[in-house]
């Protein structure tokens, strides 16, 4: 943008980022209230059906026990007012976030993902985008507080810790592969994030289902938002579906990264820190997919693998990135 001061643009962008973070905080609160209220609502709803169905749902085969009950609660819309408010706020925050990211790109005159601050900016934008896109097909609002919470923590943290002013791109980053590789990696991260959220809820739900199955049928049902959430089995299938799409993108990231490494460093693979972690994450998710197909590993164990996998992704995104810079002295080629 000739004539526009990049510093000014970046300042506006930064302002928008903080606005987005603030709105995400509100969305988080709305979602949290929603979860708290769900337990009440669920209690008021007639319960004995649910309890009976849950027991069968645990048995495999037929899915839909608690899912059906959740569906029927979904049907009576007004009761999820807070969740709707959360989604509206998240969407609003997303718009600010999007404009901020675009402005940052305009200020820098390149794609806005080439340093830690920008990785976080774009990566979290994609996480929220994927979450919102998925909402149009599945009611995953019970993940809302987790997603917005993640956005607040990471976006706020990254802006505080990593914000740098726009500087020209270092030579090694001047490559189409920066555009492709990093974008696809962020997309994969977004999908893994959703799978992670679902796996977490799956674990909690599975625990509850186990307890319910053991409890005498006439026991006083405990209040919990989980009553309004799909069964552990259903959550697992859904988590798996996001994870495999994420895994495809991650595989592509790995290949694209190797092609880039071959152009930039003269070898497609060198077990550099960043490469090691990308590989470790790939193997972990391959393990997760296998676990889903291995007797005795489906369910809780595979959910743990999904959680471990995403933890590794976050570790790679944060700690390894910071560490990675220290290792990568391009022998005088970059500052």
């Amino acid at each position: 943008m000739p004539g526009t001061d990049p510093l000014l643009l970046d300042e506006i962008s930064l302002l928008l980022v903080w606005t987005a973070v603030a709105i995400y905080v509100l969305a988080f609160i709305a979602y949290a209230i929603d979860l708290a209220r769900r337990s009440d609502l669920a209690l008021k709803a007639k319960d004995e059906v649910v309890a009976r169905e849950l027991v069968t749902a645990g048995g495999g085969g037929v899915i839909g026990g608690s899912a059906a009950s959740s569906a029927s609660t979904v049907a009576s819309k007004p009761r999820y007012l807070w969740a709707r408010l959360g989604t509206v706020l998240t969407t609003l925050g997303f718009v600010f976030h999007l404009v901020a990211t675009v402005l940052r790109g305009v200020a820098a005159e390149r794609v806005p993902w080439s340093n830690m601050y920008e990785f976080a900016l774009t990566g979290l934008l994609l996480i929220i985008a994927v979450y919102l896109a998925v909402l149009t097909r599945y009611d995953l609002r019970f993940l809302g507080s987790l997603m917005t919470g993640l956005a607040v923590l990471l976006l706020g943290g990254a802006t505080l810790a990593f914000h740098v002013e726009v500087v020209p791109l270092a030579d090694p980053l001047k490559s189409v592969w920066l555009v492709v590789h990093v974008f696809v990696a962020s997309l994969a991260t977004a999908l893994f994030a959703l799978a992670f959220g679902l796996s977490v809820v799956q674990l909690i739900q599975a625990r509850r289902e186990r307890k319910l199955a053991e409890a005498p049928t006439d026991a006083e049902p405990k209040r919990s938002f989980l009553r309004t959430v799909p069964s552990a089995d259903a959550l697992e299938s859904l988590a798996y579906r996001f994870a495999i799409v994420g895994f495809i993108f991650w595989t592509f990231t790995l290949i694209a990264g190797s092609i880039w490494a071959n152009d930039a460093w003269g070898r497609f693979w060198g077990f550099d820190t960043k490469e090691v972690w990308t590989f470790v994450i790939w193997v972990l998710y391959a393990g997760y997919i296998h676990a889903r197909a291995t007797r005795g590993w489906r369910g809780t164990r595979s959910a743990w693998l999904s959680i471990i996998g995403f933890t590794a992704v976050l570790f790679n995104f944060t700690i390894v990135n910071v560490f990675f810079k220290g290792l990568h002295a391009y022998s005088g080629l970059t500052t």
């Binding site: 899912a67 569906a71 029927s72 979904v74 599945y138 259903a234 959550l235 299938s237 859904l238």
Partner: peptide, 24 residues
């Protein structure tokens, strides 16, 4: 009958419902 949630009885294919329970 398969559990079809709010639209029970309607012939809507399951995946068009917002409910996550219909994954199988």
């Amino acid at each position: 009958p398969r559990p079809t949630g709010p639209e029970a009885g309607s012939p809507t294919p399951p995946q068009s419902q917002p409910d996550t329970g219909k994954v199988d």
